[in-house]
Write a protein that binds this DNA or RNA. Structure first.
Lengths: 246, 246
DNA sequence: ATGGCGTGTCGGGCTGGCTGCTGATCCTGA
DNA sequence: TCAGGATCAGCAGCCAGCCCGACACGCCAT
């Protein structure tokens, strides 16, 4: 059991705690130039904003004028329906770009999504016009943005894989593995998901109900695959967990 | 019934038939410069390829060296599991970029997905290195690519909305609306989805089974919402169909 | 202290997956 | 052009996974 650390790197992202002042680059490329974070920070009209957990960053229908780059914390993008139901479209991790879409698909437009701070959030923002100008002046900025969007697409598409699993047990397992990849920090016992997740939040993300999540998480815990302490989930062994697919 | 055409534009994409020689721009921006299609076509090492329906464009594990831009037809991206199960991650329409991800996230890498021609396909391809060089030389190329990726993200995220619907009936309805948006051509009776979809293919895309799709599509047909003629689905009235959500 | 939120549990009911089979349609090669 | 095989569509019956509604308890913050 102890020796099975090979392959874990897929699940251990850049730690989100500690590492003060370290501005991680998007992806894993060890580039020479400035990071996207530094570029956006340097734009005219740029800003650093801090948002408390649970507060809204933008509502659907708001005018889309700024671009956001997440520096610390997690953001939830969701669609809201008339029924009041809210569907999580993406859980963004650090160094994720968002709010970019509407600006680049052409004409000025409004937000589609509801963006709320899933944890306390620190982010760098800049006006869309500045970003556009920066791309035109320096092609490497375009490349950085492309990398950001690419990783966002990958993130989104693994979410689709998760959601197409038929039975809820598989969905939950798949979702936990995604969370390990995006928010996992290695710990003494395994990989801890650095988010405070309520069962309700998980249910909204994978299209289930609170009760079912409770039961399934209980099963996983009873089988010694995960540990839950004050809303923090620790996965002992992602590989063993992955065997749990139906 | 006849007068209810307002709002349909959301569902009627650029017609994929006819319009010979017309190279549609990505998105709806009426730009002055060359289109992405033209740019990629002009790169060194560029190529136009035609693939027959059902043939594979690339396998998972293949080295990722080229970038693809779909000119005609539809491409299915999917993940393959050891169990033999295959999950559709995206159905790409004309003017969609693909194969870009792995190239831009940093180091050289392999394909994640299985890409097969869902219809007879015509596409423009170019080596990743050429694309990269083009971006560095001309920032507007970067902007075009960003637009391409943006619309791809939107496409993917609406797919997530579809998949988080719990009951299969809603999922199917939602999926049909997505298809109308991406592959719909206006016809005399409504909007026809310009794909030849087997029930099995639909099931693999939305995480269901062939039998269930058969039953649910039958229900929709009996209720006078859709028409199916030799695997081509016509939605009479998307707005009425949208009311079918649970 | 207390109210609210999150967690754990139970049973009833139904949606939807599975198996097995038949008939229709499409494709291909002789 | 036709025949054969392969793929696709449709039907029924069975059963389980999961949603729903309801309730009790513990933890936390005000």
């Amino acid at each position: 059991m102890v020796g099975a650390t090979r392959g874990f790197s897929r699940y251990a992202s850049t730690p989100s705690t500690g590492a003060p002042g370290a501005v991680a680059a998007i992806g894993t490329s060890a580039m020479a130039g400035p990071t996207l974070m530094e570029v956006i920070r340097g734009l005219s009209g740029s800003n650093v904003e801090t948002i408390e957990r649970g507060k809204t960053i933008f509502f659907p229908g708001d005018p889309a004028e700024r671009v956001y780059l997440l520096r610390r914390g997690a953001v939830r993008l969701s669609r809201v329906y008339e029924s009041g139901e809210e569907i999580t479209v993406a859980l963004l991790r650090e160094n994720s770009l968002f709010g970019v879409l509407s600006l680049l698909t052409g004409q000025r437009s409004d937000r589609f999504y509801h963006a709320i701070a899933f944890t306390r959030v620190e982010m760098v923002t800049a006006p869309a016009t500045s970003v556009r100008r920066a791309i035109e002046q320096d092609a490497s900025v375009g490349l950085l943005l492309l990398q950001g969007l690419s990783s966002r697409i990958l993130q989104t598409e693994t979410m689709i894989e998760t959601l197409t699993h038929r039975d809820m047990s598989s969905r939950l397992v798949s979702f936990l593995l995604v969370l390990c990849r995006d928010f996992g920090v290695p710990s003494s016992e395994g990989i801890t998901i650095d988010l405070r997740l309520s069962h309700q939040a998980i249910a909204e993300a994978i299209g289930s109900t609170r009760v079912t999540i409770t039961r399934l998480l209980g099963d996983l815990r009873n089988d010694g695959l995960v540990q839950i302490d004050r809303k923090k989930i620790t996965v002992f062994d992602p590989i063993a967990l992955a065997k749990r697919f139906s």
